[in-house]
Amino acid sequence: MGHRYAVGDQVRLAFGFYDHDAVGLYEVTRLLPFQTDGEPQYRVRGSDDRERVIGESQISDAAPNGNRPAEPRSPRIPITEAFNRLIGKKE
């Protein structure tokens, strides 16, 4: 199995990515080797010009043809909301 996305495609990082500021739309700039578990990796660049290395499982949605951006997702993050309720944090 190969890479699902190509250089130039736009992808959206999944909610739950450890760096919440990183969630958003990115452009694939390079295809990287597979991880040891066989997952494809990508080098991506965001609108802030920061680059990241991500695995395919960290992509929530994308336009495989690269012509249109991924659909926006709900801003709700159920796991974060549940954790905040546990620690008593107000939203």
Rank of each mutant, 00 (worst) to 15 (best):
T80M: 03
R50N: 08
D9H: 12
S47D: 07
E27Y: 07
S47Y: 12
L31P: 14
R76G: 00
D19I: 14
E51Y: 03
N65S: 08
H3N: 09
L31C: 09
G8M: 06
E51V: 14
V7N: 00
A14R: 14
R52Q: 06
I79P: 00
H3A: 04
R4W: 05
R30E: 15
H3R: 07
G2Y: 13
V44L: 03
T80N: 01
P72G: 07
Y18K: 10
L25E: 13
T29G: 01
G46L: 10
A82V: 13
E27S: 10
Q58T: 14
L25G: 02
E81D: 11
T29Y: 04
A22G: 05
D9S: 15
R50W: 11
F17E: 06
K90I: 12
S74L: 08
N67E: 11
D19E: 07
F34N: 12
E91G: 13
Y18S: 12
L25D: 10
R68I: 09
E51L: 03
D37P: 06
R85P: 00
P33K: 11
L86Q: 11
E51I: 09
I87C: 05
F83Q: 05
A22P: 00
R30S: 13
L32K: 07
E39H: 04
A63K: 01
V28A: 01
E71C: 05
S74I: 13
D9P: 04
K90L: 10
E91L: 12
G8W: 08
N84M: 08
Q41A: 06
S57F: 15
V23T: 06
L32W: 09
Q10E: 09
R45N: 01
A82F: 06
P33Y: 09
S74A: 11
D19Q: 07
A6G: 09
E91R: 13
A82R: 14
F15C: 00
I87T: 13
L86T: 12
Y5P: 01
R73I: 15
H20E: 07
P75Y: 03
E81A: 09
T29R: 12
L31Q: 13
P72N: 08
T80P: 00
E39Q: 10
E91D: 10
F15E: 03
